[in-house]
Design a binder for these strands. Structure first.
Length: 591
RNA sequence: GGGGGUGUAGCUCAGUUGGUUAGAGCGCUAGCCUGUCACGCUAGAGGCCGAGGGUUCAAGUCCCUUCACCCUCGCCA
């Protein structure tokens, strides 16, 4: 139907007879001549109808409107002098058609894909096919394609085998809430959509497929965020006979390749690494944004000997007094602004309050609470924080956990508010040596930080018995710009260690059999040492594309309430469908 | 489930202390215009002010309830 696309014609095509197809991006009717920008996903080309084309064609051209689909056959011509448009790739030429075909009309669109104003996101989602015609969306999906292809190529070159795993599996107790699929054949039983292909890829290792890769769709029925969708895509990898080092350097290589090909950035390898403990100490989070400084400073020792009751009591009770020096931030935050920061950490992280000082010109620490401190203590605080005039010092006195959360939240805000980094820059790093277990707030028992098959570091195996909280895992997270872009572990292949892990997690032998029986069986038939990683493809695309939410890099994303505004999924189903499944809805929601 | 933000014309938004007939730009419709490319000019149509209730002589504006979308805590790797 077409000989060329709307993005490829240039001076070298002048004089050629071509046929283009596309959408009417805009039309400019000058009475005599009519100009049309014809758009497809490759670009835009100007079509010029002048009276020579004949009355009939001119009339048809005059009737064209936004988003009509047309085909034009004609000659590529150089634009007259002075009318070249340097802003578009095809701006040196135009097509002078001899023939115009109207392939399809369009209703007046609710918004113009070629327009400059971005409509509200709910409208974009409802008319996603119009939104996807926009250049930005097309560029993003193309970026996603290039990243996916780059990943597949890299792993193919490294001898990996792409193996597909089932979507209909069984529900597992750990981790996120499952999306369930009722079985018609087995009334009352349910499949679960995979949260990740975790167990299957381990089985593949046991089966001898020592290098596995898959671009895998995953499902988690949890609340959404700007960087979280209920269905998302992982680049899933697993290898046998490897150490954590092998996995990390493999992914280092992938990131270096992608950064070079996609962003034109040279990454120096190996990528920097930081332990989990260090990340929590210095940044209060296991996925810190390392594009800027503003590290957390511990003041607990000074607090213990000061007269300010809040500080001393916290220190005496085993809590922590830690702070951040928001460099040059004194002017950026008024009393009201600081009240907002306080409200933010109290509301969102359960902090009790925010102590703060502004550093005045002479170096004096000014604050409503300053009178509670002796000059010597104030000096010590100032020294410890490396305070300089114009700085804003903020402190949180609380448990280690709360101070981490609150200071992490504050640090992120300072980073944005004080413009401490170039938003286009990228910082890659690894966080390693995660704890094996974290205290479960509800049950008071231990919960797996990753999943129950994560292997402890060899030197920490004894700690499983003596001090599980100190036990560190062979786990590693890839962090880019403060986002967890991926994470993985070396798995347990020793049945004895696996039993200890299950016991600590309070998973009874019965439950083990019921949920993981097949994996435990498989592990008993010659399981090789193995481990792997999964990268969040959507997040990688989001970060590489400099986007601020994950929906913009997914063709058909869901809203925060996990609905699809275009298809209106999820929807009610027929009574007959429910009967077949043996399902009865107890309290049907209205509508 | 908690906190916050937004919702006014098809779209993006303005709308003062509650005040009489709710505006702009874009888009749309019609007409004019051969070199525009955010074309220009003229005229016109277009409003359940998210929905429901209340206060008031009077509500886009104040109060209550509710819905949708977004950010966030919890939740989730």
């Amino acid at each position: 139907m077409r000989t060329h696309t709307c993005g490829e014609l240039g001076s070298q095509h002048i004089g050629q007879q071509v046929t283009l197809c596309g959408w009417v991006d805009s039309y400019r009717d000058h009475g005599g001549g009519i100009f049309i920008d014809l758009r497809d996903r490759y670009g835009k080309t100007q079509i010029v109808f002048d009276p020579d084309v004949g009355r009939e064609t001119l009339e048809l051209a005059r009737s064209l409107r936004s988003e009509f689909v047309i085909s034009v056959r004609g000659k590529v011509a150089a634009r007259p002098e002075g009318t070249v448009n340097a802003k578009i790739a095809t701006g040196a030429i135009e097509v002078r058609p001899s023939e115009l075909l109207l392939l399809n009309k369009s209703q007046t669109p609710p918004f113009q894909p070629g327009g400059m104003e971005l409509p509200n996101e709910d409208l974009r989602l409802k008319y996603r096919y119009l939104d996807l015609r926009r250049g930005e969306m097309q560029a993003t999906l193309q970026l996603r394609h290039r990243i996916t292809i780059g990943m597949r190529k890299y792993f193919d070159e490294h001898g990996f085998l792409d193996v597909e795993t089932p979507m209909l599996g069984r529900s597992t107790p750990e981790g996120a809430r499952d999306y369930l699929v009722p079985s018609r054949v087995h009334n009352g039983s349910f499949y679960a959509l995979p949260q990740s292909p975790q167990l299957y890829k381990q089985i593949l290792m046991i089966a001898g497929y020592d290098r596995y890769v898959q671009v895998a769709r995953c499902f988690r029925d949890e609340d959404l965020r700007a960087d979280r969708q209920p269905e998302f895509t992982q680049l899933d990898v697993e290898m046998s006979f490897v150490t954590a080092e092998d996995i990390i350097s493999l992914i280092d290589g992938l990131m270096a390749r992608l950064a070079k090909e996609i962003l034109g950035i040279d990454l120096s390898l190996p990528l920097p690494r930081m332990t989990y403990d260090e990340a929590m100490e210095r940044y209060g989070h296991d996925a810190p944004d390392l594009r800027f400084g503003l590290e957390i400073v511990d003041l607990t020792d000074i607090a213990a000997k000061c007269d300010f009751r809040v500080f001393r009591a916290t220190a005496d009770e085993g809590g922590q007094v830690r702070g951040i020096n928001a460099k040059g931030g004194a002017a950026a935050y008024s009393r009201k602004g600081i009240d907002e920061l306080t409200n933010f950490i109290v509301q969102d992280f359960g902090a009790k309050g925010l102590a703060w000082f502004k550093v005045e010109d002479g170096g004096t620490l000014a604050s409503p609470i300053a009178k509670n401190f002796s000059p010597e203590i104030l000096q010590q605080i100032s020294d410890r924080m490396q305070a300089e005039p114009g700085d804003l010092l903020v402190f949180v006195a609380d448990t280690f956990e709360v101070s981490c959360k609150a200071l992490y939240g504050l640090r992120k805000r300072f980073g944005v508010d004080l413009k401490l980094y170039d938003p286009k820059s990228k910082h890659f790093s690894w966080i390693v040596e995660f704890p094996m277990f974290a205290k479960d707030e509800e049950t008071g028992g231990w919960a797996a930080m990753h999943h129950p098959f994560t292997s402890p570091r060899p030197q920490d195996i004894e700690l499983l018995k003596t001090d599980p909280g100190k036990c560190r895992a062979q786990a590693y997270d890839l962090v880019i710009n403060g986002f967890e872009a991926g994470g993985g572990t070396i798995r347990i292949h020793d049945p004895g260690v696996q039993q200890q892990a299950f016991e600590l997690l309070g998973i009874s032998p019965e439950l083990q059999r019921e949920r993981f029986g097949f994996l435990l069986d498989a592990l008993a038939f010659g399981a090789p040492p193995h481990g792997g990683i999964a990268l969040g493809l959507d997040r990688v695309v989001m970060i590489f594309g400099g986007l601020d939410n994950i929906r913009d890099c997914i063709a058909f994303p869901k809203t925060q309430k996990a609905t699809d505004l275009m298809t209106e999924a999820p929807g009610r189903v027929d009574a007959r469908q429910l009967r077949e499944l043996g399902i009865q809805i107890r309290d049907p929601a209205p509508r």
